[in-house]
Amino acid sequence: MSENNFEPKIIGFFCKWCTSAAADLAGTSRKKYPANLVPIRFFCSSRIDPQHVLHAFKSGADGVLIGGCHFGDCHYQDGNYKTARRIALLHNLLDDMGVSKKRLRLEWISAAEGDRFTKVVREFTEEIKKLGPLKGNGV
């Protein structure tokens, strides 16, 4: 597969209060973005176990985007802080595993930020395209 027509597979883990709602808003506003990302909806980003992310990479994902609420906005008080800490550790682990940490991105996108949601997905998809497929590159 040449780099030009490589279509990465990206999993989106989104909390339902902010980032999934931002994706809803992007839809309502008919903002276009690449279709490589398939979203999976959680109550809170703190439900995301690093194992889920590793499972995604193991199963063939080229990138994982985690979306939660901005600090101070978490519906469950401080779930996003927990996520931030877990993902920071996971980033280090990915390095050790030989997986570029660029393949895992954590973003805080509020329910009002439909535009930002599309921008992030667009950028992230581009970035993963540049990185190329993960398969065969570790894991």
Partner: peptide, 25 residues
């Protein structure tokens, strides 16, 4: 029902109802 316990649990004993690890995977 935030589920932060489920992701913190080292043994998989804490599970969010109808959003268990098996489902996510």
């Amino acid at each position: 029902g935030c589920g932060s316990c489920s992701s913190a649990c080292p043994s998989g004993a804490a599970q969010q109802r109808n959003l268990i690890d098996k489902q996510i995977e």
